[in-house]
Amino acid sequence: MEQAPPMIEVENLTKRYPGRTAVDGISFQIGRGEVVGFLGPNGAGKSTTLRILSSFLPATSGTARVAGFDVFREPDEVRRRIGYMPENNPLHLDMRVREYLKFRARLKGLGWRRSRERVDAVLQQCGLTDVSGRIIGQLSKGYRQRVGLADALVHEPDLIILDEPTIGLDPHQIRSVRALVKELGKRHTVVLSTHILNEVEMTCSRVLILHRGRILAADRTEDLGRRLSLDGQVIAEVEAPPAQLLEAFRDLPEVERVEVEPMDGNFQRLSLVPRNGADLRPLVSAEIREHGWPLRELTRSRHSLEDIFIHLTRGKVRED
């Protein structure tokens, strides 16, 4: 059997506006069932890329395919397969929730009976059943966001594209939207864009970092930090003579660098940077126990995507 094409294939995609290159020759692939985050500051080219993928805008050059269909030449095939929530989640504010979703379902080619079934299903799935008769303009932003998500889902698309799904929401609403996105990831391919780093960490299995129209890094969320060897530093607060402490860790093959700083009382702050991102905690605790030194804290700093991002973009800015 022939293997199904990847959900998204993008090659050398470029979008130029007069005097500005929004997307600059990017290439990537997204497989079926992945949840991928496009991460980048405002103006990085995230929305433009998503607009091209949803066949709203043509690219200046390069190709993009969704489920094997060219977004420019076969836009109808592409649109049938995607559920797209544009930036700022535009909705017809004068319509009622159920009425709106039914209208959208009809536009997406669902028959009368089918659209009714699907609207009921997505109302339930997105927790909108209680407000289905309300006018969208009178709903809170959190509910509106769910209406946008329900719209993206209503025709059971293979691919869901969400442009900044949590922007402008309060922390509680953000949590509920993220939970919904995570839930969607179990059954659909999801691509979302955001400039909030821990959103990607929490919801996505893979991340593409965009900056000034280029991809700076693309990796599994959990591997990204390791690859850039930014995490794994171990900090221990130990009551021990500094010289001995230094002695005990200096020559271990797993350790790249050791630092000891005095703290209050006789405590020392021991920081260790591992070679190859190894986890030094078991080693450190064993060593300290062997010497019988009192230990009051042992932590391994996990660098967030935030650090990675700043690290990556800072280098880039200097380069420019």
Binding site: R51, S54, S55, F56, P75, D76, R79, R80, I82, Y84, P86, P90, L91, R104, L107, K108, G109, D151
Partner: peptide
């Protein structure tokens, strides 16, 4: 309009 024009 964008939501409309990204439906088939």
């Amino acid at each position: 309009y964008e939501a409309l024009m990204t439906t088939p």
